[in-house]
Each structure stands twice: as C-alpha cells, then as structure tokens.
Amino acid sequence: MFDNFLFISSAALTVCGALAVVLSPNLMHACTYLLTSLIGVSGLYVTLSADFLAATQLVVYVGGVVILMLFAIMLTGGNDNKSVNKFGIEKIAPMGNIKTFTLAGLSALLMALVISKIIVNVTKAVPKGELPPFSSTVEKIGELLITDHVLAFEISSVLLLGALIGAALIARPRKIES
C-alpha cells in the first residue's frame, strides 16, 4: 500500500509539474515547476528501489541544472512578452516558417511513434511482476562504471574536463593591452 501511495504521489507530482511547465506563460515560474517535476521523477526512482539514481537526480538536476537554468533565464531577460506581431498575437521565435513546421511535424510523428510503442506495452496483459527484494545499488553501479562501461565513463569525464577548461578560459581575467 505504501509503495502504491509513493508511486501515485510521485507520478502525480511529475505529471502535474510537467504540465505546469508547459502551460505556464512565465519562464521563471516554468523553471520552478520543473523543480517539482524533477523531484517527482526522483520519487519514481525510489519506488523502483533505485536509491542511488534518485539521489543523483536530486544532486544533478535540482542542485545543478535548475539553478543553471534559472541563471540563464535571469541573465537573458527571460520574460518580456513585448514582441507582438501585427495581429496582436505574441510572437514566438520559431513560429511561422516552413522549415520549423516541417521539423515540428516530424518530431511530433516521432514522439507519437515512441509513445504508441510505450502504450502498446501497457495495454497488453502482462502478468503483474514482483520487484526483487531491495538491495543497495551503489556497489553494482560503481562496479559496472569501471568495468563494462568504463569507456562511457572516461569519455564523459574528458567531456567534463573540456567544459571545465573552456569555462576557465572564458572566465579568466584578460590582460588589458594599453
């Protein structure tokens, strides 16, 4: 019963948060709603007894990505709905272009395919499975990261190092030539 409660509440949090993100006209508010959605996803991980993943979700997304997005929105001015086209409708940058419409149509098709693929599995009568008894995933993840998936691990670390060096290069004080 408790598992069901946890699942339903975190699923509701995720879906409601995501809907609020999409429907909110204010970018800053959307980012705040995204926070609830991400916390809900971490709750979903907990129901699947992926404890480490849940905590990582909190550390990376809530602590890092959301703050980064908030910074980006704030520094780029975010929410000025001043640009209105001649019909008085708010102008949105990628609207009204053959290219963008084609892209949007294609991606919508792709999304529909993916979603129908998921939904087909849901509608099939799959016997109700039991989750294996809870065991800590930290050791397994650590082992897999440095054995089977060591290449991905190293590549991502090189990527991060590159990002770090790039950031240092941009942020470093320049000598003013006089």
């Binding site: 905590a55 909190l58 550390v59 809530v62 890092g64 908030l70 704030m74 800590s136 930290v138």
Partner: peptide
C-alpha cells in the same frame, strides 16, 4: 540509516541553494 545517507543529504540540501536564489530573484 539510509544506505546512501551522505549522498541523500548532499542532494536534499542543494534545494536550499535554489531557495536562496529564488528568494533573491
């Protein structure tokens, strides 16, 4: 005694940063 105790603590306490930032904004 959560088996990822320290990590959980780090994750949850990072919400404080968001709160401070949003408070300022």
């Amino acid at each position: 005694h959560l088996n990822i105790g320290v990590f959980y603590l780090l994750g949850v306490s990072s919400v404080v940063g968001v709160g401070i930032f949003l408070g300022g904004y």
